[in-house]
Nucleic acid binder design. Structure first.
Length: 427
RNA sequence: GGAGGGAUGGCAGAGUGGACUAUUGCGGCGGUCUUGAAAACCGCAGUGGGCGUUAAGCCCACCGGGGGUUCGAAUCCCUCUCCCUCCGCCA
């Protein structure tokens, strides 16, 4: 959420920044409401002051003045009416503010859409194949490690089953990534709930805008997380962190649930875009002046996963037109997948600055007794599992159809070096 | 799921309609004393918002959330959430 006071004081700057994101923001409407709100608020506060003073006078009278009390009763009614009006303006104002995306960081390249993102780095040479590399949607079923049909049978389109060494490979990846982030890097592991309350979705800015993309249980009014970013953002909700607490680095493995209503018809084959997937997510709470460098550090941490897996990848800085709703600055990491022939987005790393902190009311003090300030928050995948699996299967495939297991994962696979090509007859 | 008890400031814990401008203790900050520290003593305190130039200052709101009664609510009523105890069920 943007700061209403900031919008009030810098309306033109806010408008221009949002135009860079291709946003039609109702800034004028907000300013108008704000004006009315402040006028009414001043009025009603004056009346309340009068009531407070007079009530005190009444309390000190030996003989109650019935005329005065009657007058106060009418004042009370007037206050109640005005209060309601103030509240309804606040609600409208809040509704509009919750729909405004974050302002782009001044250093973000201006661009209309993803075609204007900037490749900032590329590492690892795409492997030369002396045979035609297969896409994972062929490899998986042939190897007997992905079962699309039974996934659909159980849960419908865009669900799948991992089995045997496929399931084990994913589990190995999760454990290895968590170990890397917690042991070689400085993240604290969190096991959060996978369902959360509505206000938690509002706090990390999934709601109200992405309502269509979330699974919601109406009976208990509870929401399935689309990413661990949601519970992690809200870990310190409504807290004031004491001096010296920041930065905080967290990492969590969770399944992620997405309805993908907005992507109907896109990426329908394979496991690139599915309703349920696993992800290891990094998250940081920092001071405002450190958030830029902490984002850079997190990108390096995510790249380390790509590097150690030995998969060619590139880092892209997102232009203003492609930034996520809550992000002020963001980078994508993409792994090369030779089978389906595309760069797969395996991580988006974003600095949200104080946007989520303001929504979730997460603050810190610089010094004991100092005024609380909003923290900055940073999130990034490290990494999303299905796409990492795709990249491994497609990059490490052999002519005989087997898959070489990346060396870093072998200790997590019981020393296994290959997923063999032959499959068991009963599956 | 059933029955009962709770929620007050950083923490503990009083307060059952007007002196609450929330008692007190601990902790915190500043000071006095001291070579220094402790102790003792004195003083200051939270959060959000409006007005005001970004100052001084004035004002409003906040005792788990929301609503109500009243001239006036931490206090009375309704409702929701969460916590605790016991019972039932359960991996």
């Amino acid at each position: 959420m943007l700061d209403l006071k900031y919008i009030r004081q810098h309306p033109e700057e806010v408008k221009e920044a949002l135009i860079k994101r291709n946003e039609m923001a109702p800034i004028d409407e907000i300013l108008e409401l704000d004006e009315r709100w402040r006028t009414l608020l001043a009025d009603v506060q004056g009346l309340k002051h009068q009531r407070n003073v007079t009530s005190k006078e009444i309390s000190q009278m030996k003989e109650k003045d019935q005329v005065l009390i009657e007058e106060m009763r009418r004042l009370g009614e007037e206050i109640k009416a005005l209060d309601q009006e103030v509240k309804s303006i606040e609600e409208e104002l809040n509704r509009l503010l919750l729909q405004l995306p974050n302002l782009p960081h001044p250093l973000v390249p201006v661009g209309k859409d993803e075609s204007e993102n900037v490749i900032v780095r590329q590492e690892g040479e795409p492997r030369e194949f002396d045979f035609e590399p297969l896409p994972h949607w062929d490899l998986g079923p042939t190897l007997g490690i992905i079962d699309f049909k039974r996934g659909v049978k159980l849960s419908g389109t865009r669900f799948y089953i991992l089995q045997g060494l496929g399931a084990k490979l994913q589990r190995a990846l999760i454990t290895w990534m968590l170990d890397l982030h917690t042991q070689e890097q400085d993240y604290k592991e969190i096991y959060p709930p996978f369902v959360v309350k509505e206000e938690i979705m509002l706090g990390s800015a999934q709601l109200p805008k992405f309502y269509d993309n979330l699974y919601h249980d109406v009976e208990d009014d509870i929401w399935l997380v689309p990413t661990a970013e949601v519970p992690l953002t809200n870990l310190h909700r409504d807290e004031i962190l004491e001096p010296g607490t920041l930065p905080l680095h967290y990492v969590a493995y969770t399944p992620c649930f997405r309805r993908e209503k907005m992507s109907a018809g896109r990426d329908v084959r394979g496991i690139k875009r599915v309703h349920q997937f696993d992800k290891v997510e990094m998250y940081k709470f920092t001071t405002p002046e450190k958030s830029d460098s902490e984002l850079e550090a997190m990108i390096t941490d995510a790249e380390e996963i790509c590097r150690q897996l030995g998969i060619p990848y590139r880092a892209k800085q997102l232009c203003t037109g492609d930034l996520g709703f809550a992000a002020a600055m963001a980078y994508d990491l993409e792994m090369w997948a030779p089978g389906c022939g595309e760069w797969l987005e395996v991580s988006t790393l974003s600095n949200c600055r104080d946007f989520q902190a303001r929504r979730a009311n997460i603050r810190f003090r610089r010094e004991p007794g100092a005024k609380p300030e909003f923290v900055h928050t940073i999130n990034g995948s490290g990494l999303a599992l299905p796409r990492t699996m795709i990249a491994i299967l497609e990059n490490y495939q052999e002519p005989d159809g087997s898959i070489v297991i990346p060396p870093v994962l072998r200790p997590y696979m019981g020393g296994l070096e290959k997923i063999p090509a032959h499959r068991r007859a009963d599956i």
